[in-house]
Nucleic acid binder design. Sequence first.
DNA 1: TTACTTTACGCGAAGCGTAACAATT
DNA 2: AATTGTTACGCTTCGCGTAAAGTAA
Lengths: 311, 311
Amino acid sequence: MDASAFEYFHAVARTGSISRASVELGMEPSTVTRHIARLEQDAGVKLFHRSGRGMLLTDAGALLLQEAGKVVDTLQHARRVAADLAAGGPSQIVVAAQPTIVKVCFAAMAHALRSRYPRARVRVIEGSAHELVSWLHQGKVDAALLYVPHLAQGHAGGEVLLREPLHCIFPAVQPAPPGPVTVPAALELPLILPSTSHGLRALAESWAQRHGKSLDVVLECDGSTSMTRRMVQAGLGCTILPLASVEEEVGRGLLQAVRIEGPEALRSVVLATAQNRPPVTGLLDITHLLRDTVFQLVDAGRWPGVDRRTA
Amino acid sequence: MDASAFEYFHAVARTGSISRASVELGMEPSTVTRHIARLEQDAGVKLFHRSGRGMLLTDAGALLLQEAGKVVDTLQHARRVAADLAAGGPSQIVVAAQPTIVKVCFAAMAHALRSRYPRARVRVIEGSAHELVSWLHQGKVDAALLYVPHLAQGHAGGEVLLREPLHCIFPAVQPAPPGPVTVPAALELPLILPSTSHGLRALAESWAQRHGKSLDVVLECDGSTSMTRRMVQAGLGCTILPLASVEEEVGRGLLQAVRIEGPEALRSVVLATAQNRPPVTGLLDITHLLRDTVFQLVDAGRWPGVDRRTA
DNA sequence: TTACTTTACGCGAAGCGTAACAATT
DNA sequence: AATTGTTACGCTTCGCGTAAAGTAA
């Protein structure tokens, strides 16, 4: 029973159709049919229910898919290591980060990675914190930059690169305090925040609990922070964000940002790598490069709101 | 890059020679050579140092072997699941146990497994407790019967089948106490025991510590317990074993066995399965069968020194 | 010399694509 | 009718084994 049979099977099960799998695999549908037919003959059971609309896994098929998935993953890793050997260094580098971080430093990072590893395929992905840890765990990304909500760092194998102060974001039309505000003062404001399970919302909730207040959430706004920014610009309320997220709007006078005081208003940016998986070739080099890039950005004043003192 | 390439590579690296790998793989040496040569070409580096005596991994080869090993393991599991599907039940059953347990009940177990799963390949392996947990973790065995030293059960996903009392084993020439002895009394005896890291030795050490005594170990005897038995027969000292290990010699008057009193002199026999790995087809059935076999042996009085009361 | 790996060569089989067919919606 | 899966057929290619050559101990 050849390993490629499991790969074909995996593709068909995932796409739910022979024709879709065939284009993904770059071969003719008839070939895929033959492979599936042979696998079913070898296994002695039907792995799919056939219908005019596609292929649906049977119970036995679902069982075998578990194993097929592992085979595909393992093979992919092995091939990648071989490719790394051939390239004399990493042949593929995948870095992910949360949107704000992407905005600030992924241009510089992509540039640094490309010039350091010209022969490697460099991929950058944007995702939520939850997605990032999941991707790390699955080995889909090599390194990730993410916010750790408060002082709860050390949960994963991450190195704290810097601490970024959070700001209260006001509409341009509303008079904002001239200097930094305290956390309790921020909690008095009508806020536009993401719904639960988002890092910033969880942080705000923990502030409210600690100071014995309740949040005045006038609007829940999920998705990209640009939507939240537009809501604040429209004067519906204030929000809490790092300065980097709104630097441009602040510069153009569309929004006002006031720093929130105190250590609880600091979010750590950590550089995380997968601990459970074997490190990719040159991962240590890569993390060094990413770290240096971040520090250079901060030193050049290109990370709004962050300097060496806060970091 | 085909998965079979990794399998061939794995075989060559493991055996250290193309010719040995070729017989293991059931093919001609020239074929294996071609596969390795192509893999090296794809990887762009030499994976082996060639010498007139065989093949030795390079650094790059060692790196790739890590991945190749995972590929081989994963593929093996996937093929097995497929074979289970084809057989309509488990196609292979691997059960392991510590030597004494093997001696007492593996004949009955092998018989029960063969009659329950006539189409399956049944394998039984004997090994030390340390090896057993390692094999379970690696997925090399489906179920294992092993002794848990004292009352520290529950560490792994194991079910306690019974508790077996330990005995003091005396030479035939030496007058032995007529009835059960206490743990402190046993600790006074000159003992022949395995060296550290063996379960029985660790148990004896813990007794000594708890009763504030020190062991009088006249001889350390590693390997099979039959060596220990011969040493006791020769009159060099006493030892501590379950009755099942020495039943035959006791019956022939070559040794004397005296039960040790108290709950601390009981060893639990646990039926363990791998928790970290997906269960094999019908594993639940198999464990049921093994459990019933043990209980039937005990009820029939075929497990020396154990009855329903101690169990 | 001996044991092992590698190359050359010819053959056979396995797998692919094209194209026609069948079945479900 | 349209989309999708399956079967038939001819062909190419890939990989195996045999046999000879090369190479280190």
